[in-house]
Amino acid sequence: MRYTILMKSYGIDFRKRVINYVEAGHSKKETCQLFGISTNTLYLWEKQLKEADFFLIKNILDNVEVFSDFIGRFVVK
């Protein structure tokens, strides 16, 4: 007998609402109960958000460095 685990997919807007609710000062337990998600799901979303922020900032800084090098070619010394 084979068992299939069904995972529910949540949209970006829903995830943002949940994260914003926690950031507004509500407890994680209260948030999970209100939105009907597990605490593991919330912790996973928070982890993914931190990782996404890190890579976004790194990408921006890398682009600033490339742009700075490009502009530096045209500056007369």
Rank of each mutant, 00 (worst) to 15 (best):
V64F: 06
D13N: 08
F70E: 00
V22D: 02
R2I: 14
I37K: 08
G11I: 06
Q33I: 14
V64M: 03
G25P: 02
K77W: 12
F74Q: 01
V76L: 06
F14I: 03
I19L: 14
L44C: 11
G25W: 14
F70H: 00
E30L: 13
F14C: 04
D69E: 05
Y3K: 12
G25E: 09
N63A: 06
K8N: 12
V64S: 02
V18D: 01
V66Q: 01
R73M: 09
V75M: 01
L56G: 04
R73W: 01
S68D: 00
D53I: 01
R73C: 03
I37L: 08
G72Y: 01
S68M: 04
R2F: 13
S27M: 04
T39M: 12
K50W: 05
N40E: 13
G11H: 08
L61V: 07
S38C: 15
D13G: 13
L44W: 11
L34A: 06
Q48N: 15
M7D: 13
L49W: 05
L42C: 05
V22F: 02
K16R: 11
K77R: 11
V22A: 04
M1C: 09
K58E: 07
E51M: 11
Y21I: 09
W45A: 03
Y21T: 07
N59L: 13
D62K: 10
K58P: 01
K16E: 15
V66C: 03
I60C: 07
H26E: 14
L44I: 09
R15M: 15
K58A: 10
V76K: 04
V66T: 02
K29P: 06
F55N: 08
Q33N: 12
N59W: 13
E46K: 05
F55H: 08
L44E: 11
T31Q: 01
K58H: 12
D53W: 04
K50M: 10
K28E: 11
L6M: 12
F35R: 00
A52V: 06
T31V: 07
T4Q: 15
L49N: 05
E51G: 12
F54S: 03
I19K: 07
N59D: 15
T31P: 01
L6C: 11
N40A: 10
R2G: 13
T41C: 11
D69F: 02
K77T: 04
Y21V: 00
S68W: 02
G25S: 10
W45N: 03
H26K: 14
R2V: 12
A24I: 05
K29A: 14
N59F: 14
K58Y: 06
T41V: 10
K47L: 03
I5L: 15
M1N: 10
E46S: 03
F14R: 11
I19V: 15
Q48F: 14
V75Y: 00
I57C: 06
K77A: 05
E51C: 07
R17V: 10
F55V: 07
